[in-house]
Every structure is written in structure tokens, then in C-alpha cells.
């Protein structure tokens, strides 16, 4: 459903992503793993339209989406949960979720989405009228993911959801993602925590210094020397 071909992206004309190609098929969980500064977030920001590619193509359901503005890309069905959560701290939890459903016109459909995400994340419902900034880091991550689900996306992209979370919390968030993917949603994960990300992925890519170095199923990748040496410390 998402095809990225020969992508080159940079900041101020200095490229940091060189000739990256990858693909996400319907109902898959795909992980892109790599260390700090490898270019993972840059790729997601380009897919969601926050950055313009210097070169290459991005196709979603066979149509070019590179060059579209972010709000148009959300309307196509891609939701991007940015790194560092970025919940709207001064807005209530419920208003954060409603912002996630900004593109949905019908009130009935919004409320239906709201009760769906409250079912997945019951903690959020208990505190729906509190400001988002009062949530703990892990809870904010839940909120960010829940907010990302509110637009009823076809593809959910999550950037570094384990960032700053205790192992137990990482486990909880991973479970939540597994659950949403079991409902048929396609998921693209970007992670430094290689093991966790590859465990839940159908397929994965390893990125180093702005280039994809290997790809394969989650299990295959965990068996490769590159991943074992560079990321799993084996």
C-alpha cells in the first residue's frame, strides 16, 4: 500500500537520507530500525508531508503523495504519531483525541472512534477531562497513539514509541499496537529498540547513516550478523 522509491531527503539541502526504498503491504507490521541519527524520523516526516523529498517517489495505494501537504496526506489515510509524543499539553485528553479526529466530519463517527480507543486505553477515559500534560510519559505515549487512531487511518506510523518508557510500559504499548494491528490496521514502526520492534514485525528494514542496509522478516533480521553485532550486543 505504501511504496517509497529512491527517496533522498535533507535539511537545508544537506541530504541525510540517500536513495532509500521500502514498502509496506496491507495488514503488515513493518519496522524500520537503526541507531540515533540514522534517519528514521526523517523518513516518516517525509511520508507524512512535513518534509519535501529532494528526490524519489512516495506512492500510497498507487497514487503519488509526495508533495502533498500534511493535512491532505492525513485525509488519504496515513496517521503519523511523532517522536516525543507531542500531545497538546494544555488541551484536555478528550480534546487531544478530538483533534486526532479533526478530518472526520460526522459527530456520530467521531464518538464511535472515541469509544473504540477508550476501550483499548481505558486509562484515558478515566481522565478524559484532565489536561494532557498531567499524564505520565507512558500515558502520554498511549494518548499519542490513541490520537493517531482517531482519524481512522489505513496506515499508522509510530516513531520511537518506546522512547523514555520503562520496560513494563514498553510491553504495554507494544501489546496495544499488536491489538490494533490484529484489527486489520497496517502499522509502520520506527525504533531504536531493535529487539522489541523486530519481535512484533512481520518484516523489517535496518537503516544506517541514511541508507537501508538489509531487509527481511523479523526473525530473519534478528539472525543476521549486522543486527546481532550492532544492535543486540551479541
Amino acid at each position: 500500500m505504501l511504496k517509497v522509491k529512491n527517496l533522498k531527503v535533507g535539511y537545508d539541502n544537506v541530504p541525510v537520507i540517500f536513495d532509500v526504498s521500502f514498502e509496506v503491504r496491507e495488514k503488515e507490521v513493518v519496522s524500520i530500525v537503526g541507531s540515533n541519527g540514522a534517519g528514521k524520523s526523517t523518513i516518516l516526516r517525509t511520508v507524512s508531508g512535513l518534509l519535501k523529498p529532494m528526490n524519489g517517489e512516495i506512492e500510497f495505494f498507487g497514487e503519488r503523495i509526495d508533495g502533498l501537504r500534511p493535512n491532505k496526506i492525513v485525509e488519504r489515510g496515513i496517521s503519523h504519531v511523532p517522536e516525543g509524543r507531542h500531545v497538546f499539553g494544555k488541551l484536555s485528553i478528550k480534546d487531544n483525541l478530538m483533534m486526532g479526529a479533526y478530518i472526520i466530519k460526522s459527530e456520530a463517527e467521531k464518538n464511535k472512534k472515541l469509544s473504540e480507543v477508550y476501550e483499548i486505553f481505558p486509562k484515558l477515559k478515566e481522565r478524559e477531562n484532565q489536561k494532557a500534560e498531567t499524564l505520565s510519559g507512558g500515558e502520554q505515549q498511549m494518548l499519542a497513539i490513541a490520537r493517531g487512531l482517531m482519524s481512522n487511518p489505513k496506515l499508522l506510523m509510530v516513531d520511537e514509541m518506546s522512547l523514555g518508557l520503562a520496560p513494563l510500559m514498553v510491553e504495554t504499548v507494544m501489546q496495544a499496537l499488536k491489538y490494533v494491528s490484529s484489527t486489520g490496521l497496517t502499522v509502520l514502526l520506527v525504533e531504536q529498540k531493535v529487539q522489541e520492534a523486530l519481535e512484533i514485525a512481520d518484516r523489517g528494514y535496518v537503516i544506517q547513516n541514511g541508507r537501508m542496509v538489509i531487509e527481511g522478516t523479523g526473525e530473519e533480521l534478528m539472525e543476521t550478523d549486522i543486527v546481532k553485532k550492532a544492535y543486540l550486543g551479541l
Binding site: 500534511p70 511523532p82 483533534m99 482519524s151
Partner: peptide, 17 residues
Amino acid sequence: KAIQATALNRDTASLMG
């Protein structure tokens, strides 16, 4: 509310559509 969200974080607001 969209004005408030945009003021808090423009990029994230645009990711909401």
C-alpha cells in the same frame, strides 16, 4: 481548539489533518 493546537505545536497540528 484547532487554533490552540496549532499554537501549541504547528507540525503536530498539521499531522492531525
